[in-house]
């Protein structure tokens, strides 16, 4: 029988100590890890529960931002008054994911590190470079409807499935971690890696990292934000494409903008090209379209997912239009 040991440390130092072991997997709500253990994709010898480490608080930061503990449940993130008031895009993104039951279990740390839903990754009888480096990527020519159009490589086109991370990426969040060597803050911008030749290495986390919290800087003054997600069914489905948008318009021009795309890339994709084109430009639909088109020039769609280019373009334009409209209305009133 394949045995594993379940450990439930009560303090962080002990957890960090335990984490420095290649046979350890940290356990959040277990909604992804346990499933992957059942199907043989993950085979840890030790499960170290991170939910009794006192990492379950949401605190206001001096700058008006928030610090959200790694084991705060997704439901509690979405329903927190401060989150809803300051970062509605985050609340909306979390609520757009999974189901009520799953969100009640899922933690912030686990959500960030959930694995791809690529069907080949989840089937140990098939090749997958992410699961078994060098074995191949049948998705390149196989079932790739759900997979990446941006940032993929010939070795892997898996998408990162999180909705929450997309919002956090648009909000310039950072991840606080601890290892044996001490504490560290990693901007979400540097947290995930593109697959390149090593799709098995998904993040830049140092060895033995415990995620402790996420920091979200103060909301940008007067900026509006929202989240749009497209999926096949009305709930309980992963994003075919999603966008988290933050926008402030001043004097009819884009004064601040952040756009992150979900469901289209191996990581929450910050649309830097589009943002650069938009800064200072008139807040008009034509400009929105041109900006996202420029971003999507880099897209490398596969036969089954070419529609995602159209989808991403349309939802970005929709979000920007809505946010610009809301800003205008806000100014008028």
């Amino acid at each position: 029988m394949r045995k594993f040991e379940y450990l439930r440390p009560e303090d962080r130092a002990r957890a960090v100590d335990l984490a420095a072991n290649p046979d350890v997997k940290l356990l959040g709500g277990g909604t992804n890890l346990i499933d992957l253990m059942k199907i043989g994709v993950e085979t840890p010898e030790f499960l170290v529960d991170t939910t009794r480490l006192g990492l379950d608080e949401i605190e206001s930061r001096a700058d008006g931002g928030l610090r959200i503990g790694a084991s705060v449940r997704n439901t509690d993130v979405a329903s927190d008054d401060r989150v809803r008031e300051r970062f509605p895009v985050l609340s909306a993104a979390v609520l757009a994911g999974a189901s009520g039951q799953l969100r009640n279990m899922a933690t912030v740390g686990g959500n960030l590190l959930q694995r791809t839903r690529c069907a080949y990754f989840q089937d140990v009888t098939k090749a997958c470079n992410k699961r078994k480096p060098g074995s191949g990527c049948p998705a390149q020519t196989g079932a790739n409807r759900e997979l990446a159009i941006l940032g993929g490589s010939e070795h892997c086109i898996a998408t990162h499935p999180s909705d929450m991370a997309v919002a956090l990426r648009a909000l310039d969040a950072s991840v606080l971690i601890e290892t044996e060597k001490g504490a560290e803050t990693i901007p979400l911008a540097d947290f995930y890696r593109l697959p390149g030749e090593r799709p098995d290495i998904e993040t830049n986390l140092p060895y033995g990292s415990l995620i402790v919290a996420i920091d979200i800087p103060a909301p940008r003054n007067g900026a509006r934000s929202s989240y749009v997600k497209v999926r096949d069914r009305a709930s309980f489905g992963f994003a075919l494409a999603s966008v988290a948008g933050v926008l402030r318009v001043a004097d009819g021009r884009v004064a601040e903008v952040a756009l992150a795309l979900g469901g289209v890339a191996p990581l929450p994709w910050r649309a830097r090209v589009a943002e650069a084109q938009l800064m200072g430009a008139p807040a008009e639909p034509d400009r929105f379209r041109a900006a996202i088109d420029a971003e999507l020039e880099a897209a490398q769609p596969r036969p089954e997912n070419a529609f995602k280019v159209t989808l991403a373009r349309r939802i970005v334009v929709r979000v920007l239009n809505e946010l610009a409209g809301a800003t205008r209305e806000g100014e008028a009133s």
């Binding site: 189901s99 839903r117 069907a119 080949y120 989840q122 089937d123 009888t125 098939k126 049948p138 020519t141 196989g142 079932a143 096949d232 069914r233 009305a234 709930s235 309980f236 489905g237």
Partner: peptide
């Protein structure tokens, strides 16, 4: 049920990947 042409079986074999209507649908 998605046919896996390379391996010859059905690729989506759990209820997260094989979608059916939810109450919201």
């Amino acid at each position: 049920s998605l046919l896996d042409r390379e391996y010859g079986d059905y690729l989506n074999h759990d209820l997260a990947q094989y979608e059916i209507a939810t109450c919201a649908d």
